[in-house]
Simulated assay, not measured.
Amino acid sequence: MLTVRPVARLVAAGLVAGVLAAVPLSSPVGAAPATPSARGTDVVSRAVTFDVVNTNGTNLACSADNQSYELHGSLVGPRHEVLSASAPRINVLVHDLATGSWSWHLRRHPGVDYARKLAQRGETSLVLDRLGYGRSPLPDGNATCLGAQADMLHQVVQHLRSGHYDFSRHPDRGTPAAEHVVVHGHSTGAAIAELEAGTYDDIDGLVVMSWTDRGASQRALDAAQAQSSLCLKGQDHATFGGSKKDYRSLLFASAARTVQRDGADLRAATPCGDALSLSQMVASAPTTTRKIEAPVLLLFGGKDALNRRDARQTQVDAYDSSTGVTHHTVKGAGSALALEASAARTRSRVLHWLHTLD
């Protein structure tokens, strides 16, 4: 059942601010809540670039090369927003280690193309390749770290708000400035989003998928250790999950075979700076989480191989500064919620929650 934990400011009758109340939504148990409709939306996708500096201004103790880079992504949304001077809201989609922007925008499988499906409901999203992944290559994978990834995410958020970024093919054409920015993160991408939100307090909402600050499963710990060992042996990029079969079993529980196969084929080698700073990220995450003030939506997979079931409620309770925490477990889903057989239910939960922010 979907539950909400708002932090209300109650002034009537002399009540003190900060009272917590558990308020269930009115949708039936097991049913996805109704979502706003935008049928007939003309969806477009336009390549965009962002100028960033690979620097770490967070409290995460890891180093980066402080050099300038260009991050690449796609702006996916209704034509009238993508090609206008402003957009009411832009959702920034932050991918996990070993994946890439494809995990949010898998065009060859339109039924689980998260960005396009949201666009068909009127939402505009930035599908970004973080530094060291996909269209945003980094020759030396040791030159960045997760603290710098959060810092660069902050820079992207600021560029979105100001409209100071470019269409790749038409740099002379103005890009839309976002009136509001909501960040969606998957797994370690969610941890990066948490660090950005807790450090800079510049977003209007946070969607955390398949991440717990202190709840990694033994399989997740073993896979992370194996990846770190490759890095410590001198590699600057390292794969996550061993064989393709192992990778699929870590990421998926119910996704179509073709989706799993293509996901394994698209698996990216992780920059070692990211892999080696993951332990520091985990250690500092609880402190960061407590500082997040934006509304938070937490989504877990019922069969997530990377997170322990007993850690979910602890994660829900961790956002004690947030103006509202909503959480839901998607039955039968693995870590890659946006790509699983239940992807439509995941999107419905997200869309309903986004609608509550309007």
Rank of each mutant, 00 (worst) to 15 (best):
M1W: 08
A8D: 09
G14Y: 06
A17T: 12
G18T: 10
L20G: 02
P24L: 10
V29I: 14
A31R: 13
A32V: 14
A34M: 11
A34K: 13
S37N: 05
S37D: 13
R39T: 12
G40S: 08
T41I: 11
V43E: 02
V44C: 03
A47T: 03
F50S: 10
V52M: 09
V52P: 03
T58C: 09
A61V: 13
C62W: 03
D65W: 03
Y69F: 15
L71C: 07
H72M: 09
H72K: 13
L75N: 05
V76E: 09
V76A: 05
H80L: 06
E81C: 02
L83G: 01
S84M: 06
N91R: 07
L93P: 09
H95T: 11
D96F: 08
L97G: 04
T99L: 15
G100P: 00
W102V: 10
S103D: 02
S103H: 01
W104Q: 05
L106P: 12
Q120C: 02
G122L: 05
D129A: 09
D129I: 04
R130V: 00
L131N: 02
L131T: 09
G132S: 08
S136Q: 07
S136M: 08
G141R: 05
G141F: 01
T144D: 12
L146M: 14
A148D: 09
A150N: 04
Q158G: 11
R161T: 12
R161I: 07
Y165R: 11
P171M: 11
D172Q: 15
R173S: 11
R173G: 01
G174R: 15
A177K: 04
E179G: 12
V182R: 01
G185C: 11
S187C: 10
T188I: 12
A191I: 01
A193G: 10
E194R: 13
G198E: 06
D204I: 10
D204S: 12
L206D: 11
L206K: 00
M209K: 01
M209P: 00
S210H: 04
S210R: 03
D213P: 12
R214W: 02
G215N: 09
A224E: 00
S228Y: 03
S228R: 15
L232M: 11
G234F: 11
G234K: 12
Q235D: 13
H237L: 08
T239Q: 00
T239K: 01
A255T: 09
T258K: 09
T258S: 15
R261A: 14
D262M: 06
D262Q: 13
D262S: 10
D262I: 00
G263N: 07
R267C: 03
G273N: 04
A275V: 05
A275T: 07
S284M: 13
A285H: 04
A285E: 07
T288N: 10
T288G: 00
P295R: 10
V296R: 02
R308Y: 00
D310E: 14
A311Y: 05
A311Q: 07
V316W: 00
D317F: 08
D320M: 03
S321N: 14
T323G: 14
H327W: 15
A333F: 07
S335E: 11
A336S: 15
A338R: 01
A338P: 02
L339N: 06
L339K: 03
A341Y: 06
A344I: 08
R345I: 07
T346L: 09
T346Y: 06
S348R: 08
R349L: 15
V350W: 02
V350F: 03
L351D: 12
W353G: 06
H355G: 12
T356K: 06
D358E: 14
